[in-house]
Amino acid sequence: MIELVYFAWVRERIGEARESHETNAKTVHDLIEELKQKEERYAVTFSDLSAIRVAIDQDLVDMDSSIENAKEVAFFPPMTGG
């Protein structure tokens, strides 16, 4: 079981800030494919992956990173700080 957290318009499109998710996925990419199959709102949110950034346990990672030891996976748009 992993925690999924969402920020900014990713959070708004999915409709929640956080959820627990049972997964068989090995990588971030697999996890996204799994979510897209689950419900339309995920398919819409993850339709353009160039607009999505990912963090595993609060570190920025690539889409092909392993989630096998992950506790928390976060999805959000490119950051706009400063």
């Binding site: 920020f7 950051m79 700080g81």
Partner: peptide, 25 residues
Amino acid sequence: MDYLKSRAPFWKKEIVNGEPRWVDA
């Protein structure tokens, strides 16, 4: 400054003329 702009997890939303819009990177 360069790193805070695009590598620190902040997201800006502007309310312009009553309409909310996310600021694009």
